[in-house]
Amino acid sequence: MSETTPGSSVSRPFLETRREDNWWVGPMATAMGLLAFTVYTTWAALQGEHYSWGPYLSPFYSPLIKPEGWPLSPAILILWAPGGFRLTCYYYRKSYYRAFMAMPPACAVAAAPHKYRGERALFIFQNLHRFFFYLAMLFVVILTYDAIIAFNFDGSFGIGVGSIVLTLNAVFIAAFTFGCNSFRHLVGGNVDCYSCASMGKQRHLLWRVVTFFNKKHMEWAWISLFWVGFSDAYVRLVSMGIITDMRIL
């Protein structure tokens, strides 16, 4: 691979690096993971059937909104909100800039040669992450409600594998949402002087709680992403009769 002189004002050729470790594994695994999720979600969202069984409702279809005369899958009406939350999330920005746009693909590996403009044009909407966060909080409430309902089998309490799957889904989505950088800012990160501001001590405490979740934001992002897809697949397979939901209680 050709190389530029250190300190040169000439841009380096795409992917130029002296790194000898497997730097490409990270972006490639990220790209495959995100692509697999996107393909599955798109397919599942367009099906418009097999999204519920008994007390279980797929998180891709929750809340279930079916306006009269709506010709498409109801999932399309709601998925833009959690999708927008993840698309504007600071962690996912890192992942898609590295994995899909190669800006840069990895540290000290030359970035893609196209003109880089930062948060300009469409990318300025990345700054609206906090609005998607508000909607994501609403989804945490809705998915928690779904998880509680998943223990209600024809009016009596029961536990099926699906109840646990949907409960874990709500927990993982909540852990991801509560670690959001915008939330961290809004609860207390925006305060300069906690000891002077009104409710400063409480805001400092809240900021520390959100910081706790924020430290593992990437991990929660991936766990919740995988599990929400798995939850849909589980409900779908049970609904289609391919697998049987095992009752624990």
């Binding site: 920005r93 800039y97 930062g118 950088n181």
Partner: peptide, 26 residues
């Protein structure tokens, strides 16, 4: 606005400062 949060600065910091999460994102 030029920073796109790819966190290489944080990765190379020998003092392990949370440059991106604790300074740039806030």
């Amino acid at each position: 606005g030029y920073c796109n949060i790819t966190k290489c600065c944080t990765e190379v910091c020998p003092e392990e400062i949370g440059i991106t999460d604790n300074a740039i994102i806030p």
